[in-house]
Design a protein around this nucleic acid. Structure first.
Length: 661
DNA sequence: AGAGTGGGCCTTTTT
DNA sequence: GGCCCACTCT
């Protein structure tokens, strides 16, 4: 039923401080000034989506909506922070009272307050993917399932299955049938392992990433008072990157917005690239059906790219059948056509990229304004080496997040165990750092410690050669639990390093100094937290891009070329973009093509890649590639470059021997 | 028996 | 870099 929505009951008496009409185009302005109620904004790449959302928040505030009644869901925490900082610049302080961040971040915040209702304690630990895998493997061992006999899936595969089931709100059997048909007959047993895993998480007071969503949803579904509390509270709900939400996230949003129905979702179905983690762009397509009276706004003017780049992007994406029809309009003036670079092999490709980067720098580009994008992390090996060789500074948004590096996780394990004595994984991880302690001994020690034996009296339970180290470990943990240290994460980190971890680092790793420097940066980052548990959750929920900002040592403002997967390049832009390894089987990847809708998703990924570029776009592919065993494989160019009309690109062949092209 | 080390093999995308 | 397996050392 369409209803009449009032933006805000509070009438404004003063004039608005922001001149919205002069700062936004017509389409953006319409979305920003829309009354409440359900709103769908279809925003093409580079069309000022972030700007629109930012000014929408400012508009709401200027119309008297209290900051703490706004919920802003974004794809990274950084995106939320930047938008809110911008609003602060425009309107002054107080914006920290807006709830903003990723689904996981907000879920964590809610669960810290109410976890006891679900049988958890408020100081629960957050498990990353590796922790989840380890705990599932432990459950497998306990269940005495022989993973060799029947080819039973291992921990990391099971973690995938469980995650998919939760994010799509399917049963284990359905998830297996859809994505792992060869394990379908094991559904019963897999479900049993899942139950054991769930119980184990509860017992050790730990949640994995999916629990932050699932338990949040459970909390609101099963507790009417909590549901009412948050439905009341969030008068306005705004969701960025809506095309990449999955079922459980859409349900959370629907539930949160159910009372006020002031929900604005922003997204672009052409940029939906996360279906493998359950994202379903049907969420955005069916939004108007789920919300009667939805107002739809399309913002299609692209301010980012020159028309030649946009034309290629439009051409490419038009091959997809399943999408909202739309065409990006360019406003910038004409420039150079995108280049299609054929190279002999990966080294030549790297050579070309490096040489071109140097030329671009001579032409006046800053290195920060250049990016090399690829489908999979390992595709950037040769480019990395070539840049290194030529002393061109670069940063890689690597596959491993800052938090996931061994030394960071080791130190975090001490802190986790100190504040959550039930954290089995953290205890075992810390224990295994002691000499002579491996998996079995760690199990035995955990049985004793969790049975209530004080650490200080377990000196003789540890292996003889670890006796001294055990004393240090027990002493450090005890001290970290004292009030003087308990909520001083930075001091706790220092204590861990001093209690012997420093020596361990020296002995274990060749790049000791680099790792110690990481830990120093971690201490600096930790100083701004007044609660250890808050520090630990922020650390494990930090995205890759954020981690670099927060924890990289100050780089004297040195400029760096960006190397990134296309997924991690989402939402960003550069003057010049190189997309490398555009070979069939690499981009699109072989694996993705097994799926029915895989090709379309890969094409959307290609669309995201090319629309990152403002002025110049280089699409390159080698004819030969070396596989892991140094065999040469003949490669075909990607179907995505072949299907674009050739006249839209300038073709260049990089000669086998020549250094210049 | 369990801890620790080195070699071979493979690599999609991530909160 | 990660995982698995075989091997050696305690």
């Amino acid at each position: 039923m369409p209803r009449e929505y009032v933006l805000n009951p509070v009438e404004r008496t003063e004039p608005l401080r922001i001149d919205y009409a002069s700062l936004l185009n017509e389409q953006q302005l319409a979305a920003v000034q829309a009354p409440g109620g359900p709103i769908l904004v279809i925003a093409g790449a580079g069309s000022g989506k972030t700007r629109t959302l930012t000014y929408r928040v400012a508009w709401l505030i200027e119309h008297g909506v209290p900051a703490d009644r706004i919920l802003l869901m974004t794809f990274t925490n950084k995106a939320a922070r930047e938008m809110l900082q911008r609003v602060e610049q425009l309107l002054g302080g107080g914006m920290h009272r807006i709830w903003g961040g990723t689904f996981h971040h907000v879920g964590n915040r809610v669960l810290r307050r109410h976890a006891t209702l679900l049988g958890y304690k408020g100081d629960f630990s957050i498990m990353d993917r590796e922790d989840a895998k380890d705990l599932i493997n432990a459950c497998l061992t306990d269940a005495k399932i022989d993973t060799t006999k029947e080819r039973f899936p291992k921990g990391d595969v099971l973690a995938d299955v469980f995650s998919l089931a939760i994010n799509t709100e399917h049963t284990i059997a359905q998830a297996l049938a859809g994505h792992y048909p060869y394990f379908e007959q094991l559904a019963g047993e897999v479900a049993k392992v899942e139950t054991a895993y769930r119980e184990r998480k509860l017992k050790t007071n730990a949640m994995d990433y999916d629990d932050l969503l699932l338990n949040w949803l459970r909390l609101m579904r099963e507790h009417a008072d909590i549901r009412a509390l948050y439905q009341q509270r969030f008068q306005y709900v705004l969701v960025d990157e809506y095309q990449d939400t999955n079922k459980i996230q859409a349900d959370l949003i629907d539930l949160l917005a159910a009372q006020h129905r002031n929900i604005m979702v922003v997204g672009d179905d052409s940029q939906s690239i996360y279906s493998w983690r359950g994202a379903n762009f049907q969420n955005i397509i069916t939004f108007p059906d789920r919300y009667a009276g939805t107002r739809v706004f399309k913002i299609e003017t692209n301010y980012r790219s020159i028309p030649e780049i946009l034309e290629l992007a439009n051409e490419s994406i038009s091959a997809n059948v399943r999408q909202f029809p739309k065409e990006l309009q360019a406003v910038r003036k004409s420039g150079a056509k995108p280049w299609l670079i054929q190279c002999g092999d990966g080294n030549q490709q790297a050579n070309f990229v490096a040489q071109r980067i140097l030329d671009l720098r001579d032409e006046g580009y800053q290195l920060n304004d250049l990016a090399v994008l690829y489908r999979s992390h390992f595709h950037c090996m040769e480019v990395q080496m070539e840049l290194q060789r030529r002393n061109i500074p670069f940063t890689v948004t690597s596959g491993i997040r800052f938090f996931e590096q061994a030394h960071i996780k080791d130190v975090a394990a001490y802190l986790r165990y100190a504040i959550n004595p039930g954290d089995e994984l953290a205890f075992k991880r810390a224990a295994r750092l002691l000499p002579g302690v491996g998996g079995k001994t760690a199990d035995r020690l955990w049985a004793l410690a969790s049975g209530g034996k004080p650490l200080a009296r377990m000196e003789h339970d540890a292996p003889k050669k670890a006796a001294a180290d055990w004393k240090q470990f027990a002493g450090a943990i005890a001290e970290m639990r004292e009030p003087a240290l308990a909520n001083q994460p930075a001091a706790m980190i220092r204590r861990v390093i001093e209690c012997g971890y420093d020596n361990y680092l020296k002995a274990r790793f060749t790049n000791y100094t680099a790792r110690l420097e990481d830990l120093n940066q971690l201490q600096i980052f930790a100083r701004r937290f007044a609660a250890t548990e808050e520090f630990l959750s922020d650390l494990s929920l930090m995205t890759n891009v954020e981690a670099e900002d927060e924890t990289a040592p100050a780089q004297e403002d040195e400029e760096r070329v960006r190397l990134s997967t296309v997924h991690q390049a989402k939402g960003q832009e550069w003057g010049v973009v190189f997309v490398i390894y555009l070979n069939d089987g690499m981009f699109p990847s072989v694996k993705s093509l097994e799926d029915r809708d895989g090709e379309e998703e890969e094409r959307r990924l290609f669309y995201v890649a090319v629309t990152r570029a403002k002025d110049e776009l280089y699409l390159s592919y080698p004819l030969l590639r070396f596989n892991a065993s140094q065999q040469e494989l003949l490669q075909k160019p990607s179907r995505f470059v072949l299907e674009v009309p050739p006249e839209l690109m300038e073709e260049v062949k990089v000669n086998l021997r020549s250094r210049d092209y």
